[in-house]
Write a protein that binds this DNA or RNA. Sequence first.
DNA 1: GTCTATAAAGCGATAGAC
DNA 2: GTCTATCGCTTTATAGAC
Lengths: 187, 187
Amino acid sequence: MPKPPTSREAVVPVLAEAFREHGYEGASMAILQDATGLGRGSLYHFFPGGKEEMATAVLADIRTWFDDHVFAPLRTNSTDRAQAREGIGSMFDEVRRYYRSGRRVCLPGVFAVGRERDRFDTAVAAYFSQWIDALTIALNVLGIRAPRQHAIHLIAAIQGGITLARALDDPAVFDGAIAAARTSLDL
Amino acid sequence: MPKPPTSREAVVPVLAEAFREHGYEGASMAILQDATGLGRGSLYHFFPGGKEEMATAVLADIRTWFDDHVFAPLRTNSTDRAQAREGIGSMFDEVRRYYRSGRRVCLPGVFAVGRERDRFDTAVAAYFSQWIDALTIALNVLGIRAPRQHAIHLIAAIQGGITLARALDDPAVFDGAIAAARTSLDL
DNA sequence: GTCTATAAAGCGATAGAC
DNA sequence: GTCTATCGCTTTATAGAC
């Protein structure tokens, strides 16, 4: 029983993990209460809009993290090939750690294939759009043909890698997908 | 108000579509009742085990369909390259139609990234295992190196293509993923 | 700011009439 | 085989004490 977090921003990552583990509908208030160590009253104090406001805050938090750790390093100077290579290599590293080799799901990805997409469509689309745009920049610097199409392909391989790794209960499937993507870019 | 289906086997595809649209938890008995046009009593008559038995029947039905239309054509004679090429080409065609360019989700895929995986793990794993095994056979006939790894990559690209097409609300993303996979195999 | 108690609605599942 | 009525439980959200 480590810590009852006392600020809204400290609660958000805990909520994020609960949503990843149980899904949006599956994460009941009782579960979120247990996960955060906060009572119902406290949760509604921080998030008057209830679960929907919590999920919105979680999606924003996720996007901020990816912006800092994944997207920003990809938006390289248009002449610096070494920087582009490093940005993409760093992306593979960060993504493998973040998704824990497929043991952890991508919340925007899960929302995209569920009913949650209707409610959180802009946040879900923005997450993947920013990722695609940033990766397209780096691939373009490397001189890859059809860089946007290639970026979509790489991100799809990552998302599908999560699905298959979980379906087969084999993290090596995710790691293999990352390794193959690296190899295809000579990284 | 077309038809209230009267046999268990006629109900299963309707249930499948309801589960795809609403998810396992989201598909309430009321929704399944409306979708099938059957009353609660009838549904429980056909599926005494309730929702869990319905989902099990749906997963079995999906697997049968893929076995007939996708997996079987991939399990080709070890010397017939033309047959292997046709099996893979047919897979891309059938998959694009079945998933409706990403407008329709893959239920085993959705279950794999959600809590449903715990309950339906064997059915989910079997679906993807059979797909991988069958595609590996065809790729091996074509002389592709590391055919199993390649099969996993292709299936992951399809699953990720669904996720991205839905996230961006753009079926062209899915079609592009299929086209790229075709091109990479000279099909 | 945090808690408990509770309201109001929806859930899956069952019973029993027909 | 199909229906309606209903049970018992869980859900989200709110109210009000502290």
